[in-house]
């Protein structure tokens, strides 16, 4: 809610000396009717908690029943978790507040994890920039697709997500939660990879050859995790990617673009990504209960 919507009349009382704006009467009327939508609603809630003048306006306008409902909302607001910057931004971008909370609770979006990704990317970019050998930054292109794969892998599963067991038995479909977290991790990882790509302008579009392999590896890892679990599946996919690159290296002249980063290789990556996405969708119900060995649960006494 911007200040210009509210004005700065400076007409504050002693108990609200820091108030520089007040909720417009039309918003208070909408608030009373329960029609004021977030984020205007949250601003009004927060402001009403601290501003006697607006509370009085609310009391003058509202009927007692509606006013009680307003107080109840206000009580709830006083306890409301303060959103972090990412959550705040997501809500401002139109993401529902409950979805934003689920997104930002993803274990892979913790600062430590993001810091590790950034450090890794910076080192790789610096190395690629310092040692130019061929038309593509091979080390960067080899590493970048693994980051979203690993990020998604550490977003969901027993032993990784501390609330996994509670999540599994919640009414929210496990596949939906997985997809919410995948979108969160993919967005962040692809964004960071994209920034790293911009730091390698000398390679031109060749530096973007990580994108389709990243989507292919992530989708394949997820599709396999429905059967192999959230640890083994991405490990196998990551290992397979490393093996593929080694084989390609052995069969390619030095300083020549490796097969996965050629146009044909990109086409294969795209096809694999689509196929894996379809398989993942078909296997969605397998994420609705844990088919994993009990030892994978995070308790002390499995049986």
């Amino acid at each position: 809610m911007s200040d210009d919507r509210h004005g700065s009349d400076g007409g504050t009382t002693s108990g609200e000396s820091r108030m520089t704006w007040h909720v417009p009467e039309e918003d208070i009327r909408a608030y009373v009717r329960g029609e004021l939508a977030a984020p205007l609603l949250w601003s009004a809630d927060t402001h009403l908690a601290a501003c006697g003048r607006c509370r009085q306006t609310l009391a003058d306008i509202g009927d007692p029943v509606a006013l009680d409902a307003g107080w109840e909302r206000l009580d709830a607001e006083l306890d409301a978790p303060r959103p972090g910057p990412v959550e705040w931004l997501l809500v401002r971008l139109g993401v529902a507040d409950h979805t934003a909370r689920l997104l930002t609770a993803s274990p892979a979006l913790r600062r430590s994890w993001l810091g590790a990704i950034c450090a890794l990317l910076v080192m790789t970019v610096v190395a690629a920039d310092a040692v130019r050998a061929g038309a593509t930054p091979t080390l960067f292109l080899a590493l970048a697709p693994l980051l979203p794969l690993a990020g998604v892998a550490v977003s969901y599963g027993p032993g990784i997500d501390p609330t996994y067991e509670m999540s599994v038995v919640s009414p929210m479909h496990g596949f939906r939660l997985l997809m919410i977290r995948t979108v969160a991790v993919l967005s962040v990882c692809l964004g960071l990879n994209g920034l790293a790509t911009l730091a390698l302008p000398a390679y031109g579009l060749h530096a973007l050859a990580w994108l389709l392999p990243a989507l292919a590896l992530t989708a394949t890892g997820l599709a396999l995790s429905s059967r192999l679990g959230p640890v083994l599946a991405p490990s196998l996919v990551g290992g397979g990617w490393a093996g593929l690159l080694l084989v390609a290296r052995m069969n390619t002249e030095p300083h020549t673009t490796l097969a996965p980063f050629t146009a044909a290789g990109q086409g294969v990556s795209g096809a694999v990504a689509v196929l894996a996405a379809v398989l993942l969708y078909l296997a969605r119900d397998r994420f609705d209960a844990s088919g994993l060995p009990f030892s994978d649960f995070t308790d002390r006494n499995a049986a």
Partner: peptide, 15 residues
């Protein structure tokens, strides 16, 4: 957070 997992999506009711 658990309330969200339990499908309580309305912010006021959830809180």
């Amino acid at each position: 957070y658990v309330a969200i997992l339990k499908e309580l999506t309305d912010r006021t009711a959830r809180h």
